[in-house]
Design a binder for these strands. Structure first.
Ligand SMILES: [Mn+2]
Ligand SMILES: [Mn+2]
Length: 615
DNA sequence: GTATCGG
DNA sequence: CCGATACAACGCCAT
DNA sequence: ATGGCG
């Protein structure tokens, strides 16, 4: 067995990550309750520091926890755990955790430690997880702190694990492979097993019962686009839902099933088939090999979702293939394009060649415009949105609603061609060629009076994000590369440009009314003196906003950089990432701040509009 | 930065 | 052949 | 109708 090594406590440690599993794997595993909170690593030596899973220092946001941890009887230690909020029943709840950080009221947070990486100068990471956890348990139990607890190993028979957990009302479990060391990576030694899965299904029929509706029959589209049977949902309905649903289903009845594979029912079951247009959300325990849900519970109708796109959500999204890079000859590489720094066209080309892996997925099938500067950023610049005239190698053209030919940059070759053609900035649409009339995101572009202190921008961004969050919208952030911040809200394409712009404007009006001394909802420079104009006009058809990872054609060659919400408060400005320092950041990022943006399924709902008082 | 035109 | 020259957006909003 | 804006 490995012995602990004596070594100095590292300043930072990246967390070990969990893999998703569908059932308990063979072999010996230690199981704990899956805590639905925020991962947090604590370094305790002279002072206590709390770090998020992405390595940001959040000590200041949890002073109470830091203070308690400081009373641990250790010279030094690194603890891995999860910060959560418990409700009255002692169960973890996620929503109140978010609002705790938003309001700064974090004194009631509980820190559940589950691993000990260093103790008093000894590196425990090569020791078996059982040993590390035993030491942590002793440490925490001896201290008996009010808000710091140990995440106990579950004492249950693995064969009955899932049922037991389900009975306890937990959302899932985390397993650690017995004997495994601690590694700052995702290596399969840590797994999570979710008890419940949730996703949307197409309503393809129902069974009639005394109450009108006995159960819903649901289906999914397979890879070939065919609608296949996915089982019956018998529980989770309240009487109001049933009353509302009955006439809707009645109106959609059809004599034969729309399913490719019609299931057989035992005699006496009265089945009514439906046009496959309604979508409902269902929680379920598992999907059988035949593709039927088990323990399905109705969660509600999803009237905002079109039935056509509903298929099984994969637990392991497939990896995109390596982009093949074709070389484009860059001429005049020695030419200085930014006299303020001496940066050359070669350095710009190197940047775009290297950032392509991050940038190109976000540009895929999205019409773009270019800011070109043949004589450098101090020379004359022009904006190009069409491909009229000369072709740029590998840049595809496609016809937009107006009939004009728009440009697409889908490959590294196309990107490098643009650079050779003296492009510096790349701006993108808020829709893709899949449907150019339905935006797949909207952007709130925070434009400050240039004289405003940066702190105002941080506070403003945070406030807008809280408003979005309260509406139920997930947002993503990037620096503009100039003075402001861009807030990106991904959408499942549904509403048209007018509807999305009107909605984004309603958000801006709401905020400007809330805090008129900080925000303006009206464009024009004199409307934002001393304030921030939240520019919703980027959400018109044909409008573009500078793309993530685009360089800006201004002194310093700053880059528009995706950031985490959690690093906003420590950000020093919107221009701090430049082509000179950007890879120090990207290479050291544990995870892409926008990793889940493409998987974010959300639409503007009637409820959101109601909250904003429109339509 | 490139394509085309006229001297 | 080579140097000169043309060309590379456009819609929305405030006033 | 015009100018600013991105
Ligand atoms: Mn801006
Ligand atoms: Mn703007």
């Amino acid at each position: 067995m490995a012995r602990a090594k004596m070594s100095p406590c590292p300043a930072k440690i990246a967390p070990q990550l969990v893999s998703l599993a569908t059932s308990p794997p063979p072999g010996k595993w230690l199981y704990e309750v899956k805590l639905d909170g925020w991962r947090m690593l604590a370094r305790c030596d002279q002072v206590v520091r709390l770090f998020t899973r992405n390595g940001f220092d959040w000590t200041k946001r949890m002073p109470r926890l830091a203070k308690e941890l400081a009373t641990l009887k250790v010279d030094s230690a690194w603890i891995d755990g999860e910060v959560i909020v418990l409700n009255e029943e002692g169960l973890p709840v996620f929503q109140p955790l978010q609002s705790a950080f938003n309001t700064g009221k974090t004194d009631h947070l509980i820190y559940f430690g589950f691993d000990l990486l260093f103790l008093n100068g000894a590196d425990l990471r090569d020791l078996p997880v059982e040993i590390r956890r035993e030491q942590l348990r002793e440490l925490i139990e001896n201290a008996s702190l009010e808000h710091v607890r140990f995440s106990e190993t579950l004492d249950v028979d693995p064969r009955h694990l899932l049922e037991n957990i389900r009975r306890l009302g937990m959302e899932g479990i985390v397993g650690k492979r017995a004997g495994s060391p601690y590694r700052s990576e995702r290596n399969g030694d840590w797994i999570k097993i979710k008890i419940h899965h949730r996703q949307e299904f197409v309503v393809v029929g129902y069974t009639r019962a005394a109450a009108g509706i006995g159960s819903l029959l649901i289906g999914l589209h397979n890879d070939a686009g065919e609608l296949t049977y996915a089982g019956r949902v018998k529980s989770g309905f309240d009487s109001r839902t049933l009353t509302e649903l009955r006439p809707r289903l009645r109106a959609l009845e059809r004599p034969v099933t729309a399913l490719k594979d019609s299931p057989r029912f035992t005699k006496g079951v009265d089945v009514a088939w439906l046009e496959p247009v309604l979508v409902c959300e269902v929680r379920y325990a598992e999907i059988t090999p035949k593709g039927n849900v088990r323990h399905a519970v109705f969660q509600g109708m999803r009237d905002d979702k079109p039935a056509a796109g509903i298929s099984l959500e994969s637990s392991t999204p497939e990896q995109p293939p390596e982009p093949r890079k074709t070389q484009i000859r860059i001429t005049h590489g020695e030419r200085v394009i930014d006299p303020s720094t001496g940066l050359t066209k070669r350095q710009l080309a190197d940047y775009y060649a290297r950032v392509g892996d991050w940038m190109l997925p976000l540009l895929h099938d999205r019409p773009v415009s270019l800011v070109r500067a043949p004589d450098g950023i101090e020379g004359e610049q022009f904006f190009q949105r069409n491909t009229t005239g000369l072709a740029i190698p590998d840049i595809e053209t496609m016809h937009r609603p107006s009939g004009k030919p728009a440009m697409l940059i889908n490959t590294s070759k196309a990107l490098m061609s643009a650079v050779q053609m003296s492009a510096i900035e790349i701006h993108a649409w808020n829709a893709t060629t899949t449907d150019l009339s339905r935006p797949d995101r909207f952007i709130l572009d925070l434009d400050p009076d240039p004289a405003l202190p940066w702190l105002h921008m941080i506070e403003a961004t945070h406030l807008v994000c809280v408003v979005l969050q309260e509406l139920g919208l997930v947002s993503f952030l990037k620096t503009s590369g100039g003075k402001g911040i861009h807030i990106v809200v991904p959408l499942t394409p549904k509403d048209d440009w007018t509807a999305v712009k009107t909605f984004s404007q309603a958000i801006v009006k709401h905020i400007a009314k809330l805090i008129p001394e900080r925000f303006s909802a009206v464009s024009g420079p004199k409307n934002r003196v001393g304030r921030i104009f939240i520019d919703y006009l980027r959400n018109s058809s044909g409008a573009t906003t500078v793309a993530a990872y685009s360089v800006r054609a201004r002194p310093g060659l700053a880059v528009s950089m995706p950031i985490w919400h959690e690093e906003l408060s420590m950000l020093q400005g919107a221009h701090v990432f430049t082509i000179q320092n950007v890879f120090r950041r990207l290479d050291s990022l544990i995870e892409d701040p926008w990793a889940v943006l493409p998987n974010t399924a959300q639409t503007i709902t009637a409820q959101m509009r109601k909250k904003l008082g429109i339509r």
